[in-house]
């Protein structure tokens, strides 16, 4: 009995002594609400945040997954506020439903960093995102140059009710204006590879001459490649995708499946860095637009090439 008591006292003393160490180790808690983890790109964003946070022992990140549910994500923000976190990272599902909770948190003095998709109004600390229209335009310019200004193109669109899908489409078409490049076939593959393969099979059956496939994401381009390979026509067609995740687009470029993949950066690392700056009392810009890179066979080993506007 005496021993146990002694042991308890010793343990207690030890804990008290080490307290400052582990208290300092994660002196800041940051909440992160991800709108869903069904998309590999968002899984990658969380991985980037985790990786960036690992090199800063002073912050600890709590991850939450809203599973594509506006109200659940709303609850996340409210939970973070009542848990008194030091900063909130949020990658919203939609702009309107989250505006209120984000404003409340911001008004209570908690810094809020919004990633990728926006919230309505400007009651947040910082927005970090990339420009899909710019990426679409860059893809269009690349295609124009590669095809010499003429040819038959298939466009496999992402979900056209989502802004990334719309922007990647309009940006691309803007760059092709006045060219002899004809979009012979376009279909909404809803970001999904099996759909892209189905649609591409229809395009292949219908058109003898297809020079290039522009897909709004890399899995779409990969699905189109598989369809062309199955028809024995992959050698005559170029495939271009967007996102350039390490294990998807960049891999496909390395394997020679895609001719080019345009990066859509996740902003995970930048968000953690911005949070630390803010918590250290520094001021960060209200709006951070992430640079994007293009990966091709020639530059993939050098880590891609930054896009010019």
């Amino acid at each position: 009995m005496k021993n146990i008591l002694l042991l308890s006292i010793r343990t207690f003393c030890f804990l008290c002594m080490t307290f400052p160490v582990w208290a300092q180790k994660s002196s800041w808690t940051v909440g992160m609400s991800q709108c869903n983890l069904g998309e590999p790109w968002r899984v990658q964003m969380n991985a980037d945040i985790r990786k960036a946070a690992a090199s800063h022992p002073e912050i600890k990140v709590i991850f939450k997954d809203a599973q594509n549910d506006n109200l659940r994500q709303r609850a996340h923000i409210e939970e973070f506020v009542s848990a008194k976190v030091d900063a909130i990272l949020v990658s919203p599902k939609e702009a309107a439903p989250l505006a209120g909770p984000v404003r409340d948190a911001f008004k209570k003095g908690i810094p809020v960093i919004v990633i990728d998709r926006r919230v309505l109004g400007d009651d947040y600390t910082c927005f970090i995102g990339a420009d899909n229209k710019k990426i679409g335009r860059a893809a269009g310019r690349w295609v124009k140059e590669k095809l010499g200004g003429k040819g038959n193109v298939v466009e496999l669109k992402g979900l056209m009710t989502s802004t990334p899908g719309q922007d990647r489409h309009t940006g691309f078409r803007e760059s092709l204006q006045g060219m002899k490049i004809e979009i012979v076939f376009e279909a909404d593959m809803k970001w999904l590879e099996p759909n892209a393969r189905k649609e591409m099979e229809s395009a292949l059956a219908r058109f003898e001459k297809i020079d290039l496939v522009y897909a709004h994401n890399d899995p779409g381009a990969h699905g189109a490649y598989l369809a062309a390979k199955s028809a024995g026509r992959e050698g005559n067609i170029l495939f271009v995708g967007i996102d350039a995740l390490p294990h998807e687009g960049q891999t496909y470029v390395k394997q020679g499946i895609l001719s080019a993949s345009f990066e859509y950066p996740t902003g995970g690392r930048e968000a953690v860095e911005a949070a630390i700056e803010i918590l250290r009392g520094k001021i960060v810009p209200k709006e951070i637009t992430l640079p994007s890179r293009v990966f091709t066979k020639e530059n993939i080993d050098k880590g891609g090439e930054l896009l010019a506007e």
Partner: peptide
């Protein structure tokens, strides 16, 4: 692990 299981295998050091 939430990722597609493909022929690109991530090693513990993060390299594919």
């Amino acid at each position: 692990g939430g990722q597609k299981i493909s022929t690109a295998i991530q090693q513990p050091d993060g390299i594919y």
